Amino acid sequence: MHYLSHSYRRFLLALLIACLAVLAGCGAAASAGDAENTPRSLTHVLSPGQQVAITATDTLKLERVNDSRCRKGAVCVWKGYVSYSFSLLNKAGATDIVLSDSMPGGASSVSVNHLTFTLLDVDPATPPALHAVEPSYRVKVKITQGALPR
């Protein structure tokens, strides 16, 4: 059986360490690039009619709240749901977005282009009483920029 000389083993060890250093450097470069592509998130609380600029070219407006939930004290044949209708406004026009965590066929998160809109919290969380005045609705939405479609 052939044995490697001491100097040849040292050479191979040095070569292996150099290769690992190069690979580690490649990993660090890839991580730095990934950090630049990491999505950024902002959270906004809106009431009907309010709008907020979310990018240099995009504005989000809460158009209306559709609350068909069964009011406290009422007799209902179904539970109902609450949904939030938004408009994403930019130079291309308006895109309708509907968020709901209880609407049949609805979604609590929607992606449009490079933006993802996620319903975080709603106020009021429960339906108002049967003869109560219409509540002041507020919705908390997380907007993630730079999210790539999957």
Rank of each mutant, 00 (worst) to 15 (best):
M1D: 07
Y3N: 11
L4S: 10
H6T: 13
R9Q: 10
R9Y: 06
L12W: 06
L13Q: 14
L13A: 13
A18H: 06
A21E: 09
V22S: 11
G27L: 15
A28C: 08
A30G: 01
G33L: 13
E36I: 15
E36V: 14
S41G: 04
S41E: 15
L42T: 11
L42C: 05
L46S: 03
P48D: 03
Q51E: 15
I54S: 04
I54R: 10
T55H: 01
T57Y: 06
E63R: 11
N66L: 12
D67E: 06
C70I: 02
K72M: 06
V75Y: 07
C76G: 00
W78V: 00
K79M: 09
G80F: 00
G80Q: 03
Y81C: 03
V82D: 01
S83M: 06
S83E: 11
Y84T: 08
Y84M: 04
Y84D: 08
F86W: 05
K91V: 12
A92E: 13
A94K: 13
T95W: 04
T95C: 06
V98H: 04
S100P: 08
M103L: 15
S109A: 14
V110R: 02
H114L: 14
T118W: 00
L119W: 01
V122K: 12
P124T: 10
P124C: 06
P128I: 02
A129F: 01
L130F: 03
A132N: 00
Y137W: 01
K140L: 08
K140Y: 05
K142A: 05
K142W: 01
K142C: 05
T144M: 10
L148D: 10
